[in-house]
C-alpha cells in the first residue's frame, strides 16, 4: 500500500519518542529517582506506532503492563507521564497509578493494566458500548504473548466475537513471558492462529517492521470498521530489556546471542535506513529530531521534579465518586 512520506516521517518520530522516553525512564529508574515497577518496551516501538496511526482521535486504547509506547502513540504527553512516574500530583493519575496504570481518558486512553490479560475483556466491553451506541469508533487492545494464555484472553476475545465488537486485539509477541520462553508457553508458531478458534480474522506480521505493521493494521481496521467484528493481529517482536527495569543484569535466562540477533533488527534503525535510502529524510534531520525529543524530555523531567507530591491526607481520594 502507498504510505505518504509525511506518514513515514511521523512513524519514525513516534518511534523515536517512545524509545527515548523508555531510555530516559530506565536511566531515572536505575538512578533511584523513579520507583516501583517499570516495564520498558525498547525494541517494540513499531507495534504501537504501526497500529495506532490507523486510529482516529476518538477511538479507544486499552493497554498492557508494558504500555508506555501505546500511551505515547495515542497522544500521551511527556510531562504528565513523567510526573506520574515520579508519583506527582501533576501526573495523569495524580500519582495514584504509576507506570502500570497510565490512563488519559481525555484521549480515550483507558489505561495500561498491571494484570496480564486484564484489559482484554474490558476492551470487549468498550467494544460492546460502541455497538450499543452505534458510533463509528473502535478499540485497539494491546497484549503480550504471555497474556494469550490467560483465561481472560479466551473469554474476552470470544465475547467480543459473539457481540461483533469493533476491537483490534494486538498481540505484541516479544517472545518472553518474564523468564518463560514461547516454546514453554504453548505449541503454536503463530499465535494469530488462535483467531480461528473464535471465528474471527487473524494475521501475523513482522512486528519490527513498522510499515508492515501499519499495513496489516490498516487492513484489520477496515474490516472492523466495516462491521465485521474483532480481528486478532500478532506482531512478532522482541523485548530488549529485562521484564522490568529493576531486573539485575546478572539474571541470564536468555541466550545473549538471541538478544544480540534481535538488537540487530531494531525497528527504528530499519525505518531510518529505508528513509535515508529513499532520501525522504537526512541524517541531520534525524539528529535534529533526536535533540528535540531529548530537550522535551529534559523539560518533562524538570516538570516532574518540580511538581508537588500528593499530601498523605489525600490517601482516600478517588476511592469513591
Amino acid at each position: 500500500m502507498k504510505i505518504s512520506n509525511d506518514d513515514k516521517i511521523k512513524m519514525l518520530w513516534e518511534m523515536m519518542r517512545i524509545r527515548q522516553f523508555e531510555e530516559r525512564a530506565g536511566e531515572l529508574y536505575v538512578a533511584g529517582i523513579i520507583t516501583g515497577a517499570l516495564h520498558a518496551s525498547n525494541g517494540q516501538e513499531a507495534v504501537p506506532v504501526g497500529v495506532i496511526m490507523n486510529l482516529k482521535e476518538d477511538d479507544y486504547l486499552q493497554s498492557s503492563h508494558r504500555g508506555h509506547g501505546h500511551v505515547l502513540a495515542k497522544g500521551g504527553e511527556f510531562k504528565p507521564m513523567m510526573a506520574e512516574l515520579f508519583g506527582k500530583i501533576t501526573g495523569y493519575c495524580k500519582g495514584r497509578g504509576g507506570s502500570m496504570h497510565f490512563a488519559y481518558v481525555e484521549k480515550n486512553i483507558l489505561g495500561t493494566n498491571g494484570i496480564v490479560g486484564g484489559g482484554i475483556p474490558i476492551a470487549a466491553g468498550v467494544g460492546y458500548s460502541i455497538v450499543y451506541k452505534g458510533t463509528n469508533q473502535m478499540v485497539a487492545c494491546f497484549l503480550g504473548d504471555g497474556a494469550a494464555n490467560t483465561g481472560a484472553f479466551h473469554e474476552g476475545i470470544n465475547f467480543a466475537a459473539v457481540v461483533n465488537a469493533p476491537v483490534l486485539f494486538v498481540i505484541e509477541n516479544n517472545q518472553w513471558a518474564i523468564s518463560v520462553p514461547r516454546k514453554w508457553s504453548d505449541r503454536l508458531v503463530d499465535l494469530s492462529k488462535r483467531a480461528a478458534a473464535y471465528g474471527i480474522l487473524g494475521e501475523t506480521v513482522d512486528g519490527n517492521d513498522v510499515l508492515a505493521v501499519y499495513e496489516a493494521a490498516n487492513k484489520a481496521v477496515k474490516e472492523i470498521r466495516a462491521g465485521n467484528g474483532p480481528v486478532l493481529l500478532e506482531c512478532k517482536t522482541y523485548r530488549w530489556k529485562g521484564h522490568h527495569a529493576g531486573e539485575p543484569a546478572s539474571l541470564q535466562y536468555r541466550d545473549p546471542k538471541e538478544v544480540e540477533a534481535w538488537l540487530k533488527k531494531c525497528p527504528i534503525k530499519k525505518l531510518e535506513k529505508a528513509l535515508l535510502e529513499e532520501k525522504i529524510i537526512s541524517e541531520a534531520e534525524i539528529e535534529e529530531m533526536t535533540k528535540k525529543i531529548e530537550q522535551e524530555l529534559d523539560e518533562a523531567v524538570e516538570f516532574a521534579k518540580k511538581s508537588p507530591l500528593p499530601e498523605a491526607a489525600s490517601l482516600h481520594d478517588h476511592l469513591y465518586v
Binding site: L110, P121, I122, K133, E155, G156, N158, V163
Partner: peptide, 16 residues
C-alpha cells in the same frame, strides 16, 4: 464466561 461478563460490563461502563 464470568470473566467476560464482569470485564465487558466494566468496559461498557467506561464506554458510557
Amino acid at each position: 464466561s464470568e470473566i467476560a461478563i464482569v470485564g465487558a460490563a466494566i468496559g461498557a461502563a467506561l464506554g458510557g
